[in-house]
Design a protein around this nucleic acid. Structure first.
Lengths: 285, 285
DNA sequence: AGTCTAAATGTAGTAAAGTTACAAAAACAA
DNA sequence: TTGTTTTTGTAACTTTACTACATTTAGACT
């Protein structure tokens, strides 16, 4: 754990004078790192050796080492701790906290990724005849996004959040067709049914969902993001962001695997989209 | 800029002996912070004052200050630098890089947010009669996501990526109706037209888009995310993630502003959704 | 309550680290 | 080459941190 957090959590282990030092540092850590041991001791109204002992108790070699670690701890900023939103936070605080939580979740998700199913997904998609992205609720927009990206490619792809459309697609699916099922919980009944149908038809069913879930049992393989408990209790937030980034990674892998000729095509698609936009010159201030 | 980068970029300004010091530090910065000025000088085969002068040239107050800043610079880790994907990266590398770039972009976006238009958006939404989320292409899925969240609320809301549907809505819009236009570039012609129509009808038009863009000129106010140049040259990636998180923040603000009674309602909605899922007990692994 | 013991805190001296002033050496220009 | 400027190092000095020991304080036991 990082030094600042340790100071606040191990307060009980400190002696009375040491707690004075701890309080001072927690109150204004920024200034502490620019003070000498003498001036810090004076400010805390304790003696210099007390400060030194305080540092040692935290496992530092001495005061300079403590300053170094404190500086590092501070440099990490507020290290994207999952900060809960409170009743009377203002909009700025809420925004910062939501961003922090998301950054935190993404950072954790990144560390706990298993690249094998991702590689397998890229592989399956490169050789797919057609690809479908299905999901409901919040996952529908994730599926929507994924399909949107694939619309730039030459492999036919569809998105749907309509159970009947999904069912029809699943019934008509064949080997070499890829079905990507997106669900945070992996427990959405309707989606499990669709996955089962496609699976029976020997289509490649890929789950972007929770491992060991009912949905993942109907999938050839499952790509999952290990996201910490979602900030908002009422709707998925960070988890779907992680799914989106995961899909970005899959797409990047796909694009690369397809080779340089393919990227030329993409450039042409991009060029073609320009007609739908106002050109940059037109921008009047 | 951060200290390590400055050392490597300002090398030309250093004298010969100072360059020795710079080389040593760049080579193994970790060990440098644990050395005294004497031992560092010996290792670099220069005198102590040379090291001290080196520190001052970088704007530090002295050697201890330099160590502090160096430590902070290191603590930020590889601060999610925008790492470009290369031809023969494997899937794991690609995934890590995509996550890194996204984290980097989000982190920058967080720092450069202006909370005023966000607060205004929350305000407008709380008192809205109905809310629409419109966007095309990649922004369509962002709008889709936003509407999905609002579907849990009691204010009527719609999403559309159909220009005709959008136009009809805009024509029928009135004061107190909110239209959220989402576009990364702010130059999508079709969306600008819709925004203009709604604007003429005195609806509250909010842009989640680039500032000073054609779209933003038809918006009452614009919420923008300052995202660094997108990683992927062919499609927006990080930018839309930032937009999504921004929308999360707006929704969190909205939920809070509506008060505790409202959150009871949300809990009921959540409870009601359970029927669509397999319960946790059912999970036979 | 009083005394003993152990822990906590402070004092003062010492060692180490960093800084300054100045002199020597090197690089450059005329 | 010689004078000038810049760079580098030496040595004295100041500041900072640490150690050993003395004092105080708090707690335990009679």
């Amino acid at each position: 754990m990082d030094l600042i957090n340790r100071i606040s959590s191990e307060q009980s282990q400190f002696s009375k004078s040491e707690r004075k030092v701890a309080a001072l540092i927690l109150h204004e850590p920024e200034q502490a790192i620019h003070r000498s041991i003498a001036s810090l001791a004076a400010l805390a109204e304790v003696s210099e050796p007390t400060v030194n002992r305080f540092c040692r108790r935290l496992g530092c070699k001495g005061y300079p080492d403590f300053k170094l670690q404190l500086a590092q701890s501070l440099a990490q900023g507020t290290p994207f701790v999952n900060r809960d939103i409170e009743e009377n936070d203002n909009v700025d605080q809420i925004t910062q906290k939501i961003f922090d939580s998301t950054l935190n979740a993404l950072s954790i998700a990144r560390q706990s990724l298993d690249s094998r199913p991702i590689a397998a997904t890229v592989e399956a998609m490169v050789s797919a005849r057609k690809i479908a992205f299905f999901g409901f609720g919040a996952s529908a927009s994730v599926a929507h996004d994924a399909q949107n990206k694939f619309a730039r490619f030459d492999t036919p792809s569809v998105f749907s959040d309509d159970p009947l459309v999904q069912r029809m697609w699943a019934i008509n699916s064949e080997p070499n067709d890829v079905l990507v099922c997106i669900s945070h919980t992996g427990r959405t009944k309707a989606l499990c049914e669709i996955a089962a149908i496609a699976h029976d038809n020997k289509a490649t069913v890929i789950g972007i969902t929770a491992p060991n879930s009912p949905l993942s049992e109907n999938c050839q393989f499952t790509v999952s993001t290990n996201v910490p408990e979602d900030t908002d209790q009422y709707m998925p937030m960070a988890s779907r962001i992680a799914q989106l980034v995961l899909i970005d990674a899959i797409i990047a892998g796909y694009t690369l695997q397809r080779g340089p000729k393919f990227r030329e095509k993409l450039a042409r698609v991009k060029e073609g989209l320009k007609g739908s936009r106002y050109s940059k010159q037109t921008t009047t201030k």
